[in-house]
Design a protein around this nucleic acid. Structure first.
Lengths: 327, 327
DNA sequence: CGCTCAATGGAAAACGCTTTCCAAAGATCG
DNA sequence: CGATCTTTGGAAAGCGTTTTCCATTGAGCG
């Protein structure tokens, strides 16, 4: 029994190996507790089964839900996923992509909003080009600015529809709690919301847009600023659900009733947050499925070599947090 | 300029390379977009910088928060983490450990409750032994049954303390929503809770323990069963927060007021769930820090070769969901 | 019965690195 | 000024696989 034979039976080669010999190999491997060194295999084969995934913050349910979708199809595709949580730091993202390239990963899924930072975007694009040129596939869940296959949530359109729906309910005086300045997802949602309001004959002054971190605490603080600086609006739109939940907490702490005194709406429809009270008006995104789609794109190359962009439309969900009661 | 020299400057060798030569290498690498093949390096060096992490469900905030802690220290330790989400399937867990061994990972962090399944536990223990014997380090966040370093939340003690606290508030008639039957974390919490009640002179009949999936929906359903099958208890203890939230939703849907009609308590103090209403009484676990500790154990071997077990005590937090109002 | 061909085993080259070992060239020193 | 160190560069061996290429064997067939 030679190394070649052993490799053939253990490595899933196409070559047929005789029955007795195959059994002998298996038996020996079992006895020795031997298992092939995947790194060596990767070197020899020139390809690995690694898929890189980057998220901004794995503890944020938005990302963890999408990641769960990605990992699910990665699992069925027998891929090993390397994950990193970048704290939305573009340099860390870039560095991870470089590591994945060094690791000769087969695919890369970048989950999360792109930024307005042109330098960072250019650098990333350059790094990705090298990655793809050597045969790697990359997919982005976010904005289509990298020139790679992307699963693109329709943030502007969703926010626009939400604005119209809220205006349709009779809300007139809005405040929006935006995310951090450079984040495209936040910007797109604010812009879309503004368009929706304009369509309804409502203007949203810049002074009514308060930015803050994309987190629960960010929402809490932004809501506090809104409360302090203005005559109370009738409706607060937080650009994502976790900020909305923070806002709810702040309003509650300040003795402002939702939705009686002021309405609140969010974005994403995070599953974990479906049970907050009052139930949050929001625009629902199929987070888990988005992850699945991204992973599938990453695993299956395009037939023609074209870039694929899958738009994901959000569904406006008016729930109790924006209900019109008395007022 | 030879390959050896290039390797020395790019690979961070201890050998000194002359300045001009080093610069030349860097320049060439930059021009060619070259980056060393980490797999080949791992083969040559006989060790890699991979850390494997397994969780039951990455979309569950309990796991994602711990994982965030793990990844944070993994990042500072320049480790690449491979993550898998097993759906609490012991076979998948075992398979992943095997893959990590094949990958020659340096460390492995197993996050999540062990089960009562003796066969699965034995198999895993055997696989882990092979892994450690070849130099890998493994850490478990959960019960100390694998014979490896473990970060051990004091589930029984926490639940006992919670039971006492609730009994101290005057609650007498309890129902507990347990997790799936074989899950140790669930069992430990139920058992501890029972002890705490006994200490307070209260008996918890088996009929008052309803098991169900460890999820929001599991909590919802279990609460429904509790409501249907019994005269309403005065206090419902769900063995984790996400089930408690499901229970809250079910109670709300059934028109049962919390805490006026029935109190509710959970376990974990999930950050994402801190804003549910009414605020959940629970026992707080430092999830993120637990992840950090686990990763640190995984990266630094014990001085003596002893097994290290770090007990993590939970802190009882009585909030409004269990407040005694009128009644 | 000799020939061709399919099936299967093994030797050895290749994958892309690291590292040991040797060599050459200065530097140091008595 | 020659001998001995100390640097630093390069050749080559080694890491653990896969895979190509050849060799052997036995079956099938006219």
């Amino acid at each position: 029994m030679s190394l070649a034979t052993a490799s053939r039976v253990l490595g899933g080669s196409t070559r047929v190996v005789g029955d007795e010999l195959r059994d002998a190999v298996h038996k020996a491997a079992a006895e020795l507790g031997y298992s092939a060194n995947l790194q060596a295999r990767a070197v020899a084969r020139g390809t690995s089964d690694t898929m890189g995934v980057v998220v901004h913050d794995i503890a944020d349910p938005y990302f963890s839900t999408i990641a769960a979708g990605v990992m699910d199809v990665a699992y069925t595709g027998k891929m090993v996923v390397s994950l990193t949580s970048t704290s939305a730091d573009t340099d860390r993202e870039l560095a991870f992509v470089a590591v994945m390239r060094a690791q000769r990963a087969r695919a890369l899924v970048l989950i999360g909003s792109r930024t307005d930072n042109a330098r960072a975007t250019d650098e990333l694009r350059a790094e990705l080009r090298i990655f793809t040129r050597s045969g790697g596939r990359v997919v982005c869940v976010g904005q289509d600015v990298l020139g790679v296959d992307t699963v693109r949530p329709q943030n502007a359109e969703g926010a626009r529809d939400l604005a119209k729906a809220l205006a349709g309910q009779g809300h007139r005086d809005f405040v929006v709690l935006a995310g951090p300045p450079g984040l495209r997802t936040a910007n797109d949602r604010v812009a879309g919301f503004r368009v929706g309001l304009a369509d309804s004959g409502i203007e949203l002054p810049d002074s009514a847009v308060i930015s803050g971190p994309f987190t629960r605490d960010g929402g809490y603080e932004a809501a506090g600023i809104a409360l302090a600086s203005r005559t109370t609006p009738t409706c607060v739109f937080a650009v994502n659900d976790v900020m909305a939940v923070g806002a709810l907490a702040c309003l509650r702490a300040s003795g402002v009733a939702v939705p009686d005194d002021v309405a609140v709406a969010g974005f994403d429809d995070i599953p974990t947050l479906q049970d907050v009270t009052p139930p949050l008006s929001t625009v629902a995104l199929p987070l888990f499925r988005m992850g699945e789609m991204a992973a599938r794109l990453a695993l299956r190359p395009a037939d023609d070599d074209q870039q694929r962009v899958v738009p994901i439309s959000g569904q406006v969900l008016l729930r109790q947090s924006s209900a019109i009661t008395r007022r």
